[in-house]
Amino acid sequence: MPPLHILQIDASARSGRSGVDPRGSHTRRLTHRFAERWQAARPQDTLTYRDVGQQPPSPASGDWIAAAFTRPERRNKAAQAQLAESDVLVAELLRADLIVIGAPMYNFGLPAQLKAWVDNVVRVGVTFGFDRSRQGEPYWPMLPPGKRLVILSSRGDYGYGAGGRLEAINLVERGLSVPMAYLGLTETHSIAIEYDEFADERLRASISTAEAAVDELVGKLARDVAETQGRALELT
């Protein structure tokens, strides 16, 4: 069976990793751990790394929108140039079997750098379809099936998870899972570190719990892949 391809995206404005660098990023710590554990479990797989926190994509502009909604055969060189960066980001998403995103909570939602990435990969005619004359739903997803999304987050406060005291104002996971599901990526796994602003034993415990959850998730997903590939081989 062909190897899988992993797309690892970091979005924190902090360049270092907590536990390694002073004032380092918790999300970078988790994405690094995930990638390291995955490559140990499945060394045959390949990985593309993109740091939107340090090299943010350009935000959508009026010219970008006009170019995106122009049919490809009608785009002039200026329109093609507007979409060049987006084309690269979309190609990375299309190639990936597993998308691992480090998404810290900034003011209850995504960092602007990561939102710019989302806006660059939600592309009509490329990652989602639209036909106003289509019967029923005029929109449909265009991502190939079988992709998985892993969201690794961090939060200053606590209780943002399912059933938590602040669940209703957590816009991070939904900020990624909703647009990705719209494109056809519907399997999402989320792990988060909390209590960062408290900087006490609760933060240390949360980090330990999140790292253990990352290890468990890597094991589960790697086993799922092996089982799926094994069944496919039996059918050949």
Results as ranks from 00 to 15, higher is better:
6 I>V: 15
8 Q>M: 12
8 Q>E: 14
9 I>F: 01
11 A>M: 06
12 S>K: 03
15 S>D: 14
16 G>A: 02
19 G>V: 05
21 D>C: 02
24 G>E: 05
25 S>Q: 08
25 S>F: 07
27 T>A: 02
27 T>F: 04
28 R>A: 06
29 R>I: 00
30 L>P: 04
31 T>A: 03
38 W>G: 02
46 T>Y: 06
47 L>P: 06
51 D>K: 07
52 V>L: 09
55 Q>M: 12
55 Q>G: 10
55 Q>H: 15
57 P>L: 07
60 A>H: 09
65 I>E: 15
68 A>Y: 03
70 T>H: 09
71 R>L: 15
71 R>M: 15
76 N>Y: 12
76 N>F: 12
76 N>R: 11
76 N>D: 15
77 K>G: 13
78 A>M: 07
80 Q>G: 14
82 Q>G: 02
87 D>E: 13
88 V>F: 04
94 L>S: 09
96 A>D: 10
103 A>T: 09
104 P>A: 11
104 P>L: 11
105 M>L: 12
105 M>E: 12
107 N>H: 10
108 F>M: 10
111 P>L: 08
112 A>P: 07
116 A>F: 10
116 A>N: 15
118 V>Q: 07
119 D>Y: 05
123 R>L: 08
124 V>S: 10
126 V>C: 09
129 G>C: 05
130 F>P: 02
136 G>V: 01
136 G>P: 02
140 W>C: 05
142 M>R: 15
143 L>N: 02
146 G>T: 04
148 R>M: 13
149 L>V: 07
149 L>I: 07
150 V>W: 03
153 S>R: 09
156 G>I: 04
157 D>C: 05
161 G>P: 10
163 G>P: 01
165 R>C: 11
166 L>E: 11
166 L>G: 04
168 A>I: 09
168 A>P: 06
173 E>A: 11
173 E>F: 04
175 G>T: 03
178 V>D: 10
179 P>A: 07
180 M>L: 15
181 A>K: 08
185 L>V: 10
189 H>P: 06
199 A>F: 13
203 L>T: 05
206 S>I: 00
207 I>P: 00
208 S>Q: 14
212 A>G: 09
214 V>R: 05
218 V>P: 02
219 G>P: 05
224 D>F: 00
227 E>Q: 14
230 G>P: 00
232 A>Q: 14
